[in-house]
Amino acid sequence: MTSTDDTDPRPLPPEEPGPGECCDSGCDPCVWDFYNQELAHYRKELALWLARHPDAT
């Protein structure tokens, strides 16, 4: 892994809902809906970060 500027840390992925956090009753929104929104945001932020740090692995 390459050292990067501490003022621009690599984004961290969201934590996946744990066992039992989804009640499987069709809630709207579901914890999985929130997770998927956070995951999409993380992927965008990671792509931007990787563009700023092309030497990162």
Rank of each mutant, 00 (worst) to 15 (best):
M1K: 10
N36Y: 06
G20E: 01
E21P: 14
D8G: 09
E45G: 07
K44P: 08
P13A: 05
D24W: 04
W49M: 08
R52M: 10
D28T: 13
P29I: 02
P54M: 03
A51E: 12
Y42C: 05
T7R: 15
P19V: 06
A56C: 06
E15H: 12
C27K: 11
L39Q: 01
C27Y: 09
Y42D: 03
E45D: 11
P17I: 00
L50Q: 13
Q37A: 14
L39M: 05
L12M: 10
C23R: 08
A47K: 09
K44E: 15
P13I: 08
P13H: 04
N36A: 06
P29A: 03
C27V: 06
R43V: 06
A47L: 01
K44Y: 15
C23N: 12
S3G: 07
D5I: 07
T57F: 06
C27L: 02
R52K: 13
E15Y: 05
P29W: 04
D5M: 11
V31Q: 11
D28H: 14
R10W: 12
D33W: 02
Y35H: 07
R52H: 14
H41L: 10
T7I: 03
M1P: 14
P29C: 02
D8S: 12
V31Y: 08
L12F: 10
P54Q: 02
G20P: 00
W32Q: 10
T57C: 10
E45K: 09
L48E: 15
W32P: 07
W32D: 01
G18T: 05
Y42P: 06
Y42Q: 01
D28E: 15
G20T: 00
A51M: 10
G18I: 02
W49L: 06
W32K: 02
P11F: 00
P29L: 04
D5L: 14
P29N: 01
R43G: 10
R10D: 03
R52P: 12
A51T: 06
L39F: 01
A40E: 09
L39K: 10
C30K: 03
V31C: 15
N36H: 12
E21W: 03
P9T: 05
L48K: 09
G20Q: 02
D55R: 14
G18R: 15
D55C: 09
P17N: 08
C30P: 07
E15V: 13
T2L: 15
G26K: 05
C27E: 07
R10H: 13
